[in-house]
Amino acid sequence: MMKNEKKGFLLPPAVGYSFQVIVYLFANHLVSFRFLLRTIITLLINVINWPFRVYEKLFINKKYKSGELEKAPIFIIGHWRSGTTHLHNILCQDKQMAYVSTFQSVFPDTLFNKLGRFIFEGFARILIPGTRKGDNVQLGTGLPQEEEFALGDKTPISFYYFWMFPRSIHTFFQRCVRFAGVKETAVDAWKSDYRLMINKALKDSGGQRFLSKNPPNTGRIEKILEMFPNAKFIHIHRNPVEVFLSTQNFFNKMLPHLQLQTIDAELLTKAIFDLYKDIMHDYLEQSPKVPKGQLVEISFEALEKNPQLSIKTIYEELNVSGYEKSIAFMESYLDSKKSYQKNTHQMTRELLAKIQSEWGFAMKHWSYDIPANIEFIDE
């Protein structure tokens, strides 16, 4: 255990969702009996939060629904476990960057209601553990977080519903990333909710340019450009072999704290293989449509080896000002993380062969070989 690590526990993001979304989720997805108590607690907190959500929706949200962004938003994309969180935390040291906080991601409509925020953020500070279960990343209510948790709070479109109902991960991907079978009115509502969330994040974090870190957007480039034609994208990629091992470890450690439904280990492994193929193929298909100067690609390996060079490349290729003013803050942050211990992984040669077979297209595209530090174990 890390020094001074605060213990705590996580609850499913449904604690802050609208009743409309709650009804959709529980009417269409089965709750496993072993998670019945967790479900009851989640719904109880949701009911307690209800009047605060209603107040903010009626009297506060309208202030943030309109208005164009002064600066082009930046979207960090890439498959899970590819370094998106690390890069997001580094770039958020730039004072101009606005972001969705962990608290906003769970209670997006209890953000500017003073009494509601005092109550729920106070409880969240007590309950949230010091580090994330899957990878030891620091947690805190005010720290940067990916917005996918909040995107489904009013309109039932969020890929992260799968954390609660993992058996439907494929269905959620098709519906919430590819928008398959979703009515245009629902897509428009999702876009409106997204803009609202961004405007509130700008106010809440005090930044001038919104910086997103949201892996599902790796497959939504076209939709993002429909909303923000001048949007800038940073795609970070990592050796697929390490991505698989890290994703498997992360899911295995995080799901027990968020799920409301059991899932077979074999089914979860298949979902990991399918998810990578689907979202990376979508990225490779959509990324050429990004206008010149609005997309930069970096590797996790390069970011680890020379973070200053990778960061400078991002600012220069996307024509974003502020590098010289912010690099000292970023270097200070990087120095504070030097003691961070990454998870170690082992694998069988059979698993390696499957990864090469299933994800070989990505290894070829980004010129990845078998990592030298992989430790093989017997079958």
Rank of each mutant, 00 (worst) to 15 (best):
Y24M: 05
Y24A: 09
F26W: 06
F26N: 04
F26H: 08
F26G: 07
V31D: 02
R34Q: 12
R38Y: 04
R38F: 06
I40L: 11
I40C: 09
I41P: 14
L44C: 15
N46G: 14
I48H: 13
I48P: 10
I48C: 13
W50P: 09
F52P: 09
R53E: 00
R53L: 08
V54P: 03
K57W: 10
F59A: 09
Y64C: 01
K65L: 00
K65E: 00
K65G: 00
K65C: 00
S66H: 01
G67P: 00
K71G: 12
K71Q: 14
I77K: 09
H79V: 04
H79P: 02
W80P: 05
S82K: 11
G83D: 07
H86I: 08
Q93F: 10
Y99D: 01
Y99G: 01
F103I: 08
F103V: 08
V106R: 13
F107Y: 14
F107W: 11
P108F: 11
R117A: 00
I119V: 13
I119P: 08
F123T: 10
F123Q: 14
R125Q: 05
P129G: 08
G130W: 02
D135T: 11
D135G: 09
Q138L: 11
Q145F: 06
E146Q: 02
E147W: 02
